[in-house]
């Protein structure tokens, strides 16, 4: 291990060895855990103690936590695939002047509140599972479109000129520079926005309780003020989300060797 100079840990912009970074992270984890154990050891508890959370986790596991995680992931996957396809079509049409206002308008609609819109969606969709997917698709798409428009807008004019100078038609420029040349960014956009989707699960899964999912589990636990279960679920949701994030980042590097975002 590199020389341990703790003073350097507190110096702004100081570059430190990787092992030291890991060590600092470890210290923080220990501190948080210690705070959790000590802070919940007294008579008054504002936060459930680790033992209660562990008991909540065991309860959840026995009640089919894995199945619920699977259900949430499946819902998320369905909505993600549909919304990314819709968003890509909209974003790729954005460089065409006639379609640009539509893309920009859809992007602005991300400020719409969820509640009012779901009412109208319920009028056109009968199946509750379809309703869950539709709600997620609509809202995910608005965020995806916003991010993808940002990716398209950030392409330097020089890259477009380079393709044009190689006798590319405007459609070829769109295909080579915007679509093929930025495929890796799609995974990155997905990765950045999946956090929002993951947070929306709780709301969306409450539409159809029979289908299960992490959102349903949280809702049930909340109803009975079972704090141990609630925190256990939060931790599970966080870990699954982080797992997806790591997987997508790995996938981007695996599929696109040239990608250094």
């Amino acid at each position: 291990m590199a020389n341990l100079n703790i003073a350097s840990w507190f110096k702004p912009f100081e570059r430190i060895a990787k092992e030291h970074t890991a060590l600092i992270s470890g210290v923080w984890i220990v501190l948080v855990l210690a705070l959790w154990f000590i802070g919940t050891s007294g008579a008054t508890k504002l936060f459930p103690p680790p033992s209660l959370v562990w008991a909540g986790f065991v309860d959840l596991f026995n009640e089919g936590l894995v199945r619920h995680v699977g259900s949430s992931l499946w819902l998320c996957a369905q909505a993600t695939v549909i919304s990314i396809v819709v968003s890509l079509v909209v974003a790729y049409l954005a460089p065409i002047p006639a379609f640009r206002p539509v893309a920009v308008m859809l992007s602005r609609m991300r400020y719409l509140p969820l509640t009012g819109i779901t009412f109208y969606m319920a009028m056109v969709v009968n199946d509750a599972r379809d309703m869950q997917v539709l709600v997620l698709v609509v809202f995910m798409s608005l965020y995806f479109i916003t991010s993808l428009l940002g990716v398209v807008a950030a392409i330097p004019q020089e890259e477009l000129d380079h393709a044009r100078s190689l006798q590319c038609s405007r459609w070829e420029v769109l295909w080579e520079v915007v679509i093929k040349g930025r495929l890796d960014y799609v995974i990155e956009v997905l990765r950045q926005n999946l956090a929002i989707t993951w947070m929306m699960l709780v709301t969306v899964e409450s539409i159809l309780i029979a289908a299960g999912g992490l959102g349903v589990l949280i809702k049930n636990s909340d109803r009975f003020a079972n704090h141990g279960r609630i925190v256990a679920l939060q931790i599970v949701i966080l870990l699954v989300g982080l797992g997806i994030d790591v997987f997508l980042n790995f996938l981007r590097r695996l599929l696109f060797r040239y990608s250094k975002i």
Binding site: P156, E158, E159, D161, H162, A163, R164, S165, L166, Q167, C168, E176, V177, K180, G181, L183, D184, F256, Y258
Partner: peptide, 26 residues
Amino acid sequence: EGDVGFVSQNYVLFRHKTIEQAMEFA
């Protein structure tokens, strides 16, 4: 457009093509 080759100051290339693929494309 495309009649004249243009090499920009930053030597822009297709980021998703290897050198050989870029030459084939050219």
